[in-house]
Design a protein around this nucleic acid. Structure first.
Lengths: 225, 225
DNA sequence: CTGGTAAAGCTTGAATAAACCTTTAAAAAT
DNA sequence: ATTTTTAAAGGTTTATTCAAGCTTTACCAG
């Protein structure tokens, strides 16, 4: 497991790195945002410990940049208690968890474990199933010649389904992943997008369908005939 | 699996209950400590989700009262970030785990699973008997090749029977575990579901049956011939 | 040891409720 | 101005509950 720590309080940063090393992580360490962003781009990490208030490039900027570059490494945000309101922003930007300083070492380790466990497997760049694949850069769903462009939400939903292709994904989970955990998005909303997606899948003659098991959630299935 | 949620933020409480229900737990819900303590005394739960800062009787008071009364149901504490220092107190009072608000739904579910699993009754994730086993994620009953999907109630009833495979489970207890103790569900209702389940067991050629001893309850039995 | 009777359990079909689907239109965002 | 997102409405399907008639079991009286 490889962790990147981005934290400008040098003492704290060194301590965290030390703790992680003692727990058999390999650790990269940097003291400002710009450097951190370089690391993120050049290296694949299993998790990132990220302070928000750091010089040169804030934690949020990094998160946003990561998101845009479709780097899905799990992120644990560190923040002072006075910045509490910003946490929602952080989670919306794609952070997976946060901790306020100061904190207990055991809790820190627990959260690092939780956060990295959450994304054990590597998510493919352009997830695919059957003859269909999702091009993230063009926000496009394509399939032997045919292709069709997706809206942002459509794209995100399709991505979640593709990344959980063997599982049934409950609406709750879709809402959490696509709209954010504190959203009051209605179920109907998802149903609408599922309907859109099904239409588009049919339009490009995809060999997969979106199915649903009542009460459990949506899942993809390959048609075979 | 039956969970009690004690949380005074009504929106959050309802959301948690909803999420749990969708994951095949049955849930009791209350918005203050006093009511919560009543529930705990009158009902047996597999786990309790407990906010600390709640009206009438604090989470700690409940915890303390529980342990004094030798009620060992596992407890997952919810707490605002600002009450962090109190967590140690909570764990000292006998809580099994805690989460700070806000949190990710997946994490919440993971922690509920963990906390309830910790209970040493060792309830298997996919309980089984004879050649039959219950797949939690699929809500499916399966048996060497054959498998059949269950409705939510069917699933929960089957789960209770499998987890008490050496015992006769009275209707009262089934109602309590599946519908909730304050339900006015008729016995007939259970009989209907038992009937459904027997039909499905036969359909997949299971080697177990659901039997009944008049006045005592239902139990599973392995066929041997 | 019958046979009658009441309670408990079984089964089925119909009614109700909940979950899901689709379309359309309004609102927001770009 | 166009695309994307949300909201609303009505329709379909499936799960759940209700109701009724039937079968089995236990028990008591004759």
């Amino acid at each position: 497991m490889k962790i990147l720590v981005i934290e400008d309080e040098i003492m704290l940063a060194d301590t965290l790195a030390e703790i992680l090393k003692q727990n058999n992580y390999s650790v990269d360490l940097c003291y400002n945002g710009e450097k951190g962003w370089e690391f993120i781009q050049t290296e694949v990490y299993d998790g990132i410990v990220l302070d928000i208030m750091i010089p040169k490039m804030s934690g949020y900027e990094i998160l946003k940049a990561m998101r845009e570059a479709n780097i899905n490494t799990p992120v644990l945000i560190l923040t002072a208690r006075s910045e509490m309101e910003d946490i929602v922003t952080g989670l919306d930007c794609g952070a997976d968890d946060y901790m306020t300083k100061p904190f207990a070492i055991t809790e820190f380790l627990a959260r690092v474990r939780a956060v990295t466990r959450r994304k054990e497997y590597i998510l493919p760049e352009n997830p695919s199933m059957g003859n269909v694949f999702l091009l993230q850069q063009q926000c496009t769903l394509s399939c032997k010649g045919n292709s069709i462009s997706l809206g942002k939400k459509e794209y995100q939903i399709m991505e979640v389904l593709l990344n959980n292709c063997s599982q049934k994904v409950p609406k709750e989970q879709l809402i959490e992943k696509v709209w954010g955990f504190d959203s009051d998005c209605e179920y109907n909303n998802i149903e609408v997008y599922i309907s859109f997606l099904r239409k588009k899948l049919k339009a490009i003659e995809a060999d997969i369908t979106i199915n649903n098991t009542r009460g459990l959630g949506y899942y993809l299935e390959v048609l075979n005939d």
